[in-house]
């Protein structure tokens, strides 16, 4: 008897916590996204209260409308922000892959006794504050920043480049922040490749470049895919990077939600923006999940 109750208690504690602080808040977002927005406090019309019981529930359900969602579609700003976020995430993923692959390759081919140190060095900046890493780039990219000073001294340019507060700065920030997420799965899949396969390819007359494309790269594809998802998925909803490094024209969807909530105080529209964002994310997340399940055990 005691065994049974201990077991259910162990299940119940984290279960109830997640129900209370993950699932219910999420349902509230859904509910508010379907409610009418009014600019007062609380800034939405509650259309469902527990006290009304079942009859109230039915009345509320019939009153739910998609006004906020219609607004999202009609006002072009949101659509543009979603598309722009997808574009930024896609390009950043590609650039991270191009930069990350040689690094992961170098790490995987490094002498064995060096590998754990290199891994630690890779993860170390990831542990330091996200905000500080973005802040560091403000000092580099601003018009009188380190990059412009260096380029002017080297006489590579005649006048300072404007990079900060443009889309380019956002790409740099995202690539820099998420690079370890790309490198880690790449490294994991490159490191497990059996060196004898490459020797066999070379014995059969393959040059080292073609051995790379015909043996190494195809075998590292699980890492390429996993790393790409790990950069792409969080980049879409990113707020801090476009806010600090991007210009006022750089409207990614995470920033739109933030402004809708904190500046316009329109909770209904902010909730609708959140729900649509999640619906966009579901596709890559499900694809990623299926990819991970297929390759479970292959990647740590």
């Amino acid at each position: 008897m005691r065994k049974v109750s201990l077991r259910s208690l162990m299940i119940a504690v984290p279960y109830v916590w997640l129900l209370l602080f993950f699932l219910i808040p999420f349902l509230i977002v859904v509910k508010i996204s379907l409610s009418d927005s009014i600019t007062a406090s609380p800034p939405y019309t509650p259309q469902l209260t527990v006290q009304d019981g079942l009859a109230g529930l039915w009345a509320a359900l019939s009153e739910f409308d998609f006004e906020n969602y219609v607004w999202l579609i009609e006002d072009g700003v949101y659509l543009k922000a979603y598309l722009f976020s997808l574009k930024v995430a896609a390009i950043s993923t590609l650039v991270s892959l191009l930069i990350g692959y040689p690094i992961a390759y170098g790490m995987a081919k490094a002498p064995k006794r060096w590998r754990s140190t290199l891994l630690l060095l890779l993860i170390l900046p990831f542990w330091t504050s996200f905000l500080i890493r973005i802040y560091a780039w403000i000092g580099i990219l601003k018009s009188e920043g380190y990059l412009n000073i260096a380029l002017l001294k080297l006489r590579l340019i005649n006048e300072p480049l404007n990079i900060l507060y443009t889309d380019a700065a956002v790409y740099i920030g995202i690539v820099y922040s998420y690079l370890p997420f790309m490198i880690l799965p790449l490294y994991a899949s490159l490191e497990r490749i059996d060196g004898r396969l490459l020797e066999a390819a070379e014995d059969l007359g393959c040059g080292s470049v073609s051995a790379f494309w015909q043996v190494t790269f195809p075998l590292s594809l699980p890492g390429v895919i996993a790393g790409s998802f790990l950069v792409f998925i969080p980049a879409i909803g990113e707020f801090v990077i476009p806010d600090l490094l991007g210009g006022s024209a750089t409207l990614m969807i995470g920033k739109t939600l933030w402004l809708e909530f904190f500046a316009n105080r329109d909770w209904g529209v902010a909730s609708a923006v959140a729900i649509v964002l999640l619906m966009i994310l579901i596709v890559p997340i499900v694809l990623f999940q299926r990819h991970q399940q297929k390759h479970q055990g292959e990647l740590g």
Binding site: I103, G106, K109, P111, L122, T128, I140, Y146, G195
Partner: peptide, 25 residues
């Protein structure tokens, strides 16, 4: 794999330089 080769060493130097230079500044 006893030693680094030039390509790998270059990739690692540039890669880790990119990761650490902003923080070093």
């Amino acid at each position: 794999n006893r030693r680094f080769n030039t390509f790998n060493l270059t990739a690692l130097t540039f890669g880790f330089g990119f990761l650490y230079l902003p923080l070093l500044l």
